[in-house]
Each structure stands twice: as C-alpha cells, then as structure tokens.
Design a protein around this nucleic acid. Structure first.
Lengths: 229, 229
DNA sequence: ACAAAAGTGTTTTATTTACACCCATGA
DNA sequence: TCATGGGTGTAAATAAAACACTTTTGT
C-alpha cells in the first residue's frame, strides 16, 4: 500500500460466538438488538474494531463487555466479507468463538443490546445479518477442534466429573459415546488430575472430581499427543 | 452499525499463498516488491479489497492477475489485524491459500511486482510485512487439510502416477510414507480412477496413470469418508 | 429396599505398521 | 545386462468397538 493514493476503506467488525455448557446442552450467548437494522432480532455480540485496537483485542473486549470475563479461550474462525452482508454499508466481519464456564457469567446488558440470553445452540434457527452462518461455521470448527485439542475443559468448572466431561463431548459432537471407552481414552491421555475428592449431596453414588492438568498436557504435547475422541 | 455515527475505517487487503508442486518440492509463488515499503523484498501476492468486491473475489482476482488461472482451489485461512502490521497505516489482511497445477502457470509480472518466482517453501526464511507468518499459517492449514480432504490432487496434473501423489504427500507433510501402505489407503478410498494407460519414455517400468474421480469422491463423502493419510 | 448414577475389564474386530522381492523399460 | 523406479501381500501389533454388572449414596 503506497501512501500516494487514497484507498477505499471498509469498516471492520468482530462477532463473537460465545459458547457455554449447562450440564446438558451447548449454549450460545445472544443479544437482542436495540437498534436498526434488525431491531429486536437476536444476533451475535459484536462491534467495530477500533482504530488502535488489534482484532484479537476487539474480540476480547466484546467478551469482557458482555460477561466481565478475561483470559478466556478465544479462537478466530473465519472472516465474512460479502459486499451486501450488511444492509447499511460495507462491513467485513471477523468471526471468533470463545469457550467459557457458564457458571462464571451473569450476562449484563450493554450499550448495544437491550436483552441478553443463553440459547440452546440446536434451537437457534435464524439470526440477524449473516450471523446464523457465522454461528454454524464456529460450531463446526468447535466440533473439529474438540476432537483434536483438549479445549472441552474450558467449558467446564474447575472441578468436574467424568460424566460431565462425557456429556459435554456428546452435546457438542451431537452423538452418544460409550462410557467405558470414553473413560479409558481420557485417562490414558494423562491430562486430567484425579483430585481424590467426591461429589456430595447427590442421591446416588458420588462421582470422583477431576481437574484439567495443564502441566501434563504441555508434557504430552511435546511427546506428540493426539487428542482424539 | 448505525448510520448516525462516523466510524473508523480500516483498509482491508487479501494476501494469497499460492502453492504449487514440481515433482519434488512444495513451492510458493512470491513477488519481489516494486514499491515501498519493503521495496525489493519478497512478499506474498496481495492487494486491497475493492469497494464492491467480495473478499473471495478479491483473492481470486489476485490469483488470476498473477497466473491467468480461474476456478482454482482457494481457501480462506486467517485474518491478520495487528495495529502495527503495516508500516504505512492500518491494514487488516485476510490470508488465503490456493493450490494450483504448476505446469499450467507461467507467472507474469503485474502492476505491483517487478519480479515473480516460485520458491521452495522450506527455503523461504523471511518475507516483507508479516507475510512469513501468514505463509507459515497457511502451510500448517494445508498440512492439516491434506490429511482430511483430498485436496492434494489440485496440485497435480490431470493424470498422475501413485508415486507422484505419494511424493506430494511426503513433501507437504514433511515425512516419508510407506509405499505399500500409502497405495493401499489411497485405492481403498475409491476416489481415484485407474486410466489403464501408462507413462512413456521413462527408463524404467512405466507407471500406471490415474486421475481424481470427483464423482466417486462425492459419493464417498455422503457415506462419511475419512480421508486420512 | 429402592432408585439413580458411578465405576470397572474383557473379547472381538478393524486398523495400522513393518517389511522385501520381482517386473518392465530405456540406455 | 544393468540401472531405475514400479508394483505387489502378509503377519504382527495396536487401537477401536461392543458389551453388563456391581457399588455407593439419598430417600
């Protein structure tokens, strides 16, 4: 780019598909739009990228504004740049997804949204702009990566049971898994820590609690882990 | 985005990592820059996105300008948007890669390049801007996808031998593969057609020629193929 | 004692890996 | 006849899939 010419400039935005998991279903955090276009319709949280802001920073900002969370798993997925994707002008948007522990969040209204809600991903059928397409693309990427990288833990509390972990996998991948085989695989990977403590107050045999063992995972990565479920 | 405010606008560009394969090595098509910044340095072909141009169209245009090729395998990989990635201003760039049959190309100089050349990917050590990072990211994606989707054919001529295909895989993945096991896997997938014709003019037993069988591949996809090498 | 979910091994099947020699051609 | 790369099968090891009962708790 030379500075001797004046170039066309597009607005660039970031949209963030924020995934959570509530012990049964994969959820996505949506906002009800408080302005035109698509007033009153559900949409992904997003905003324009500021002049002096890295795009990753913008994605983190959107997440923080909505949830108060920082240092959260965030992954860029794809950029959507059809000329007519925004009715008010040329806006190229970069789609991200984040994985958060849903318990840590009580979503708060923000400048650009008058209502915020967790929705079951499978129940979402349409969204403002091309946001449904963005969400679907991010879900697909999540499914792919869940099989290759141990990112599922990001959606769970610090301490979790193996059944919770399995339910998460089943929910995201959309299929049933065999309990014994699942446990065998997970434990063989050596990336979760048995805390030797148990659930309490459940009307059945209490489950052992585990946590993700980041150190062992780093070790396993070096030795060439394949995290396949 | 409301139209009642004036938003900051960034320039948006597309950079294209054009891969080719010359029977031995994976190559990338680079240009020597004919203007500042980075005058005289090697860079990825790229250009700003036009006001009324989809981003995919822009990526295809860059490819066409340089090679004369259309309808070529093109995949968006990642968007690079650090504030300071371009010394002359804010430019957010979308990285693509394409796979082409190197025989079909005699690269031509263009407005923005005074020299064009195929380089061995492994020999490229630095590039203008953050292009080395973009190239590396695209290479990594190519490696991943080559194991999951039959895109290797895009780099070969219409008719190819199994050894050529294997060399391609070895070159992209950067590791040796067992000849018999490779052939077993490829043929079991049922996505290549044995043309029942042979190489000529080689000083050894002539190899059978094959072509990619797009129809069988579509069929196999429906039945849930896993194209793993 | 009953309901509810936790936890645990073995056998079968499929996949992956390792490995070496003969074949067809041009020089 | 020699050099060069083409083409082929089998056995062993590993990984994946299928499958059912006992345990522990709260009610």
């Amino acid at each position: 780019m030379s500075n001797s010419r004046e170039y066309f400039k597009s607005a660039v935005s970031v949209d963030n598909v924020i995934f959570g998991f509530d012990d049964t279903d994969l959820k996505v955090l949506l906002i009800k739009r408080g302005e035109e276009p698509f007033f009153g319709e559900w949409a992904l949280p997003g905003d324009l990228v500021y002049p002096n802001e890295d795009i990753n920073t913008a994605a983190n900002r959107i997440l923080f504004d909505l949830t108060g969370l920082e240092n959260v798993y965030l992954e860029q997925v794809s950029t959507f740049g059809e000329v007519d994707r925004h009715p008010k002008g040329r806006v190229i948007t970069i789609g991200y997804f984040s994985l958060i522990n849903i318990e840590k969040v009580s979503p708060r209204a923000s400048s650009f949204a008058n209502e915020i809600s967790w929705k079951n991903v499978r129940d979402v059928k349409e969204l403002a702009f091309d946001h449904f397409k963005i969400m679907t693309t991010c879900l697909y990427r999540l499914q792919t990566n869940l099989k290759l990288k141990p990112i599922g833990f990001e959606l769970l509390p610090e301490r979790f049971t193996l059944t919770e972990l399995q339910l998460l996998y089943e929910s995201v991948l959309g299929k049933q898994l065999d309990k014994r085989n699942f446990r065998k695989k997970i434990t063989k990977m050596n990336i979760i820590k048995d805390l030797n403590i148990y659930q309490t107050g459940v009307a059945h045999r209490p489950a052992r609690l585990y946590s993700f063992d980041a150190e062992s995972y780093q070790q396993a990565l070096k030795e060439g882990i394949t995290f396949e479920i």
